[in-house]
Amino acid sequence: MDFAAARKVMVDSQVRVNDVTDRALQAAMLAVPRERFCAPERAFSAYADTPVEIAGDRRLMLPRDVAKLLQALDVQPGERALALAAPYAAAVMARLGATVVAQDSDPAVAAVVAPGLADEGVELVEAPLTAPHGSAYDVIVSEGAVADRPEPWIAALRIGGRLAVVERRGPAGRAVLYVRGREGVSRRELFDAAGQVLTEMRPAPAFQF
Results as ranks from 00 to 15, higher is better:
residue 85 A to R: 05
residue 96 L to R: 08
residue 17 V to M: 06
residue 190 L to H: 09
residue 181 G to E: 14
residue 78 G to M: 03
residue 49 D to G: 06
residue 206 A to E: 14
residue 166 V to D: 09
residue 50 T to I: 10
residue 5 A to Q: 15
residue 17 V to I: 15
residue 14 Q to G: 08
residue 105 S to I: 04
residue 192 D to V: 13
residue 122 V to G: 01
residue 21 T to L: 10
residue 66 V to D: 00
residue 119 D to A: 15
residue 42 R to W: 13
residue 168 R to W: 02
residue 53 E to K: 13
residue 119 D to E: 15
residue 109 V to L: 08
residue 184 G to Q: 04
residue 70 L to C: 06
residue 138 D to P: 05
residue 198 L to K: 03
residue 165 V to M: 03
residue 26 Q to N: 14
residue 155 A to Y: 05
residue 64 R to Q: 09
residue 19 D to W: 08
residue 202 R to P: 06
residue 138 D to F: 04
residue 145 A to Y: 01
residue 78 G to W: 04
residue 27 A to G: 13
residue 43 A to F: 10
residue 178 Y to A: 07
residue 131 A to S: 12
residue 29 M to C: 05
residue 196 Q to T: 12
residue 99 T to F: 00
residue 76 Q to P: 05
residue 115 P to N: 10
residue 189 E to M: 08
residue 2 D to R: 11
residue 41 E to G: 10
residue 121 G to N: 13
residue 160 G to E: 10
residue 17 V to Q: 09
residue 5 A to F: 13
residue 30 L to Q: 08
residue 164 A to K: 02
residue 185 V to L: 06
residue 136 A to I: 00
residue 150 P to L: 02
residue 46 A to M: 06
residue 130 T to S: 10
residue 29 M to Q: 01
residue 79 E to Q: 15
residue 135 S to R: 12
residue 205 P to M: 03
residue 160 G to S: 07
residue 12 D to C: 10
residue 47 Y to F: 12
residue 167 E to K: 11
residue 93 M to V: 01
residue 161 G to M: 06
residue 84 L to C: 09
residue 79 E to P: 00
residue 180 R to F: 01
